[in-house]
Structures are given as structure tokens and as C-alpha cells.
């Protein structure tokens, strides 16, 4: 592996970040906005896991084919990604609850039509 492939996974992570933010700016529906936030967040999974990768290494879970101590990717970044996913799920749940309340109060979930001062 050489040249641009050394940085390509990072480019994918940043692309997910940028395209997710693009979705947020163009959103006409808060549920769509929440999904875009999930895309932005998935860029962090991509970044963590691409730092983690080793061509010759297996998962950090040992068994009969890869006894303890054999080559393996970084377990800490895997644990961090797990934390990241749990936090992502909770953020989505909270934002969806807020969206339902906004719809109740304002009758719309189009962020373009939600003006701070209008009642």
C-alpha cells in the first residue's frame, strides 16, 4: 500500500462528515436532519476504525484459530467506537422526541418554517 491509499480511509470519513453537514443545511424536514446528524456521526466511526486497521491483524477477540497474543487490531479504538454508537443511538432518541414535541406545538417540522419568534 502506498501513495494516496494511505489516506483514502480518512478521506472517506471526512467525506461522510461534509456530506452529512450538507444534508443538514438543505433539510426541509427535522427527521431528515436527524438522519443527517447520524451520517455525520458515522464519520467518527469510520475515522476511529480506519486508524485501527492493520493488514495482517485479526479482530481483538481470541479463539482457537488466533490464540491470545496473536496479531490483532487495537482493542481500545473498538471499545471507543462501541461507546460512540451507544451515544449516537441516545442522541437520535432525544432528537426524535424533541421533533414530536415541535410538531405538536408548531404544526410543522420544516426547519425553514420554524422561526424562533413566530407563534
Amino acid at each position: 500500500m502506498s501513495g494516496w491509499t494511505l489516506y483514502f480511509p480518512y478521506a472517506v470519513a471526512f467525506w461522510l462528515f461534509v456530506i452529512g453537514c450538507f444534508g443538514i443545511t438543505q433539510s426541509r424536514n427535522l427527521i431528515h436532519t436527524i438522519l443527517c446528524i447520524a451520517v455525520v456521526q458515522s464519520s467518527t466511526y469510520m475515522l476511529l476504525l480506519s486508524i485501527d486497521f492493520h493488514a495482517q491483524a485479526g479482530a481483538p477477540i481470541f479463539g482457537s484459530t488466533n490464540p491470545p497474543g496473536s496479531a490483532s487490531v487495537d482493542p481500545i479504538l473498538h471499545a471507543l467506537t462501541l461507546t460512540d454508537i451507544v451515544v449516537g443511538a441516545t442522541v437520535t432518541a432525544l432528537l426524535l422526541a424533541l421533533t414530536i414535541q415541535i410538531y405538536r406545538r408548531r404544526g410543522t417540522i420544516d426547519p425553514q418554517r420554524l422561526r424562533p419568534m413566530s407563534e
Binding site: 500500500m1 491509499t5 489516506y7 480518512y10 471526512f14 462528515f17 486497521f53 492493520h54 493488514a55 487495537d74
Partner: peptide, 15 residues
């Protein structure tokens, strides 16, 4: 961000 990534460990080499 890509410029910053140049400072990260190269893909597949972090340990």
C-alpha cells in the same frame, strides 16, 4: 481536514 490527516499515522500503521 485532509491536511490534518497527513499528521495522523498512515493507514494501517498505527500501533
Amino acid at each position: 481536514l485532509m491536511y490534518a490527516a497527513m499528521g495522523l499515522p498512515k493507514f494501517g500503521t498505527f500501533s
